[in-house]
Nucleic acid binder design. Structure first.
Length: 449
DNA sequence: TACGTAATAT
DNA sequence: AATATTACGT
């Protein structure tokens, strides 16, 4: 959803969602500008604090240049004035603020006690080292001397004045803001946790950084697990096999826990029921064809499955989103968004893994998967390109379900992205065979909703 | 001590 | 929502 800024005279500017720093800054420039230039009479109450804050900031700056940090904290206050305005004008993102935050960040780590009580000191040391390494990378990446001003700080939590939240602060290059979650095919990125494609995202303090289990990283994990065998896959060994710098046993254990839980189908139950309760006969038969209790996490004779037994759990909300993998295998081991109800079962091979076991499609050429694939493409792509906010643009589950039903029951609906000529022919043939009088308009990507 | 699990925190 | 952390039992 675009953020709209309504100006006084009724003009509205639509800002597309990953709000760029520049735009944000621009807005705030307007605010500040207005705070100073508007006549006192015309000056709204909400602008007064802005002016006051800016004035105090300027004073501070001239008085003592070293105290940029405080000045910027003042700026932070500015962002919090006026209840209404906060909604429409997010916190300012000014160079001063950034620098101040960096200063704050460089300040002492209040969690030192935490750090010292860290049990696995070995691991912790490793992490400290890792973070420093990452910092070096950061500096190496940036052209000299430009680093300070180009690094952008992003809060995951609102209140950065709370020392306990420092850990959630990450730095990013501005140009990477939109691709924070981006995981591309660059395999080298998997070798360092938290550093993807050398687009640095580092934690500010020495505390543990959250590991982002990118597809690459997860692939490594899965590979290690499979290599070890189901009953030798313990955190420490997995860790060894993965050989990922900075990764701790805890990280692996945590991931492993989740991995196992998903393999055991703890998550899917409720949604499985949902599908089984479908009244649509076609869907029911479809459900019956697929494995309902897949993936017993145990393999006699240590026979490892050729393909992993699960899809990466990912976005279980967007059930349709995983179909992207069907037909091609760009990400054979890692499905960006899981559709658990199409998990495979032991013995299934990689090319079929993850695919529903479908009855021969009743009208040939119309497979459920085909349509789902298209339906879900955008979501899957969004996940891959790290734009979770775009989920807003996608239909709710009920809508998806409805659409799915439609697709199943009305195979003649136009395919959103069109069919290649041979398919088109068979589609037309099928339509005429069924005696359908309504031939849909040529497909153009529109999805019935 | 490492591990697994569940609950809880961030 | 995804990870981390913690508590507790083995």
């Amino acid at each position: 959803m675009p953020r709209t800024c309504q100006l006084l005279l009724g003009a509205v500017e639509f800002l597309s969602k990953p709000l760029s720093e520049d735009k944000l800054r621009n807005i705030w420039q307007h605010v500040v500008h207005k705070a100073f230039n508007a006549g006192v009479s015309a000056q709204s109450e909400s602008l007064k604090p802005v002016k006051e804050s800016v004035v105090s900031i300027l004073q501070l700056q001239t008085n003592n240049e070293q105290h940029e940090s405080r000045a910027s904290i003042e700026l932070e206050k500015v962002s919090r004035f006026g209840d209404n305005d906060r909604e429409h004008y997010p916190a300012p993102s000014t160079p001063q603020l950034k620098q101040a935050e960096r200063l704050l960040d460089d300040g002492d780590c209040q969690e030192q006690t935490n750090c010292s009580t860290e049990k696995e000191s070995g691991e912790h040391d490793g992490e400290s080292k890792f973070i420093e390494t990452t910092c070096e990378n950061l500096n190496a990446e940036s052209t000299p001397r430009q680093t300070k001003s180009e690094i952008t700080l992003v809060h995951k939590e609102e209140d950065f004045t709370d020392a306990s939240k420092y850990e959630s602060v990450v730095f990013r290059h501005p140009q990477n803001l939109k691709v924070l979650k981006n995981s591309d095919s660059n395999t080298t990125s998997a070798n360092k946790v938290g550093v993807r494609n050398h687009k640095c995202e580092i934690k500010a303090n020495r505390k543990k950084m959250k590991v982002d289990w990118t597809p690459e990283l997860h692939k490594k994990f899965v590979k290690a697990v499979e290599q070890l065998g189901i009953d030798h896959a313990i955190p420490s060994r997995i860790l060894d096999l993965m050989k990922v710098e900075g990764l701790t046993r805890h990280n692996v254990a945590s991931h492993l826990q989740k991995y196992r839980m998903h393999k055991r189908h703890i998550l899917p139950k409720q949604e499985d029921r949902k599908w089984l309760n479908q009244r649509d006969p076609m869907q029911r038969s479809y459900c019956l064809q697929r494995p309902i209790m897949p993936s017993p996490p145990y393999y006699p004779n240590h026979t490892l499955p050729i393909a992993p037994l699960y899809s990466m759990w990912g976005q279980s909300r967007n059930q349709t989103a995983s179909m992207q993998v069907w037909g091609h295998s760009g990400y054979p081991l890692w499905q960006p968004t899981e559709s658990w109800h199409w998990k495979s079962f032991p013995g299934m091979h990689s090319d079929t893994w993850g695919c529903p076991v479908l009855p021969p499609p009743q009208p040939p050429n119309f497979s459920f998967s085909h349509n789902i694939h298209v339906l879900s493409n955008a979501n899957a792509a969004d996940y891959m390109f790290g734009m979770p906010s775009s989920f807003d643009h996608y239909p709710a589950e009920e809508v998806v379900d409805k659409v799915v039903k439609e697709v199943i029951s009305k195979p003649w609906l136009p395919l959103p992205i069109g069919l290649k000529p041979p398919s088109t022919d068979s589609v037309l043939a099928e339509i005429s065979r069924q005696g359908s009088s309504t031939i849909p308009p040529s497909s153009n990507g529109s999805i019935p909703s």
